[in-house]
């Protein structure tokens, strides 16, 4: 068993494997299928509770992952200001591994695909992919 604490390395390797052997279009297709078929817990919360559902989802997952971030929820907007992404921290810490260079791209594909069909606009702005700094901003469309 690959432990869930070791998963991020396997995830990065999976992106690299698909990208190298099958190309970027296939990797994006993988991310889209992951969004469509696996992220139903986020989708259900967005469908039921909108912005508050996003806050509920990420409060739980980012807490378990030990993220250093600030979440803000208003009537019109939900945002995450990520100071240190826990996933990129794992990739940085494990210096023996060459991380997939576009690792952060998957967040843009996954979350936009889940959230935007419900009438929201989702922007993911990565300011420092190595240190894991980004902003996820969701606004009412």
């Amino acid at each position: 068993m690959i432990s869930c604490t070791e998963f991020i390395m396997a995830y990065s390797e999976l992106f690299a494997f698909i990208d190298e052997r099958y190309g970027r279009e296939e990797l994006v297709r993988f991310w889209e299928e992951l969004a469509d078929e696996f992220l139903f817990n986020l989708r259900d919360l967005v469908a039921e509770k909108g912005l508050a559902g996003m806050s509920e989802y990420w409060s739980h997952t980012l807490s378990e992952e030990g993220a250093d971030c600030r979440m803000t929820l208003t009537d019109d907007e939900f945002s995450i200001e990520m100071n240190h992404c826990p996933s990129t921290a794992i990739l940085r810490r494990n210096k023996h591994l060459t991380p997939f260079p576009d690792y952060c791209e998957h967040c843009k594909v996954l979350y936009r695909r889940v959230i935007e069909p419900y009438g929201f606009r989702c922007e993911v702005t990565v300011s420092d992919p190595v240190m894991g700094r980004c902003v996820v901003r969701v606004t009412k469309g």
Partner: peptide, 15 residues
């Protein structure tokens, strides 16, 4: 102490 997010098992399984 590493953070334990067990849903990663589901994501690995999907991959």
């Amino acid at each position: 102490m590493p953070n334990v997010h067990k849903d990663f098992h589901g994501c690995f399984n999907f991959g």
